[in-house]
Amino acid sequence: MEEIMCAEELSKTFTLSRKQQKIEGTRVRRKTAVDHLTFSAYRGEIFGLLGPNGAGKTTTLRMLATLIRPDSGDAVVDGSSIVSDPEGVRAKIGFLTSELKLEDFFTPNYLFDFFSRLHHVDDATAAERKERMFKRFGIDRFAEVKVANLSTGMKQKLSLVISLVHDPEIVIFDEPTNGLDVLTARTVTDYLQELRAEGKTIILSTHIFSLVERLCDRVGVVIDGRMVACGTLAEVCDGMTMEDRFFEIYKEVKGSDAE
């Protein structure tokens, strides 16, 4: 198995506002979101980061996508460091999260071409790719409709397509089915499996056990910013369902707090 992404001791802390300190009942100014996280992803697999809300999954993925910088540690994505070569990393990944929006004013057609140019995809390849992807996701019929007038599902499918204009080897996906209707969610998960079949690597975050079981080859369980279990699905589950195993791990980590 070829290691394509390796995160080493990634850490990230945030400063809490006074209001936030009050809400959390703490006087500590800094909150550790990600605490020395180490894990790897291999070419052609779907790796899942599983954890409850606030565990640090999204922060980890945002660091891998170079939207934010780690306080310490590093990750090497297909040979490029997220700390010293963020542009190189961004050229190799496709990143998708609900916080990334597309401008309402433009049409899918324009946006695909615009992002293709930013990724330096040549015109012929971009045109061929656009036709294929638009057809695959049913966007072709809405290619000249402004994003503002697209349905929510269509917008999400377009966001996915736009994040993949450069046919990246690594796809980083934050909560891939969050907020999607069942049909769109199915289209997305099917597509992720197609990507894996093509030899792409997918790193996703989720708190949905069934999604991990259905999609992931390997999984890392993140609680309070720390990687508490990591391995193949079979290794981590140890003969149990993902859900049961997760709560067992959770209890082990949190002790009596978990009750």
Binding site: T66, L100, E103
Partner: peptide, 17 residues
Amino acid sequence: GEKERGTIATLLVTPMR
């Protein structure tokens, strides 16, 4: 406006400097 609408983040994840 781009910050508010979340569209700047989409630009920031491209390899553009």
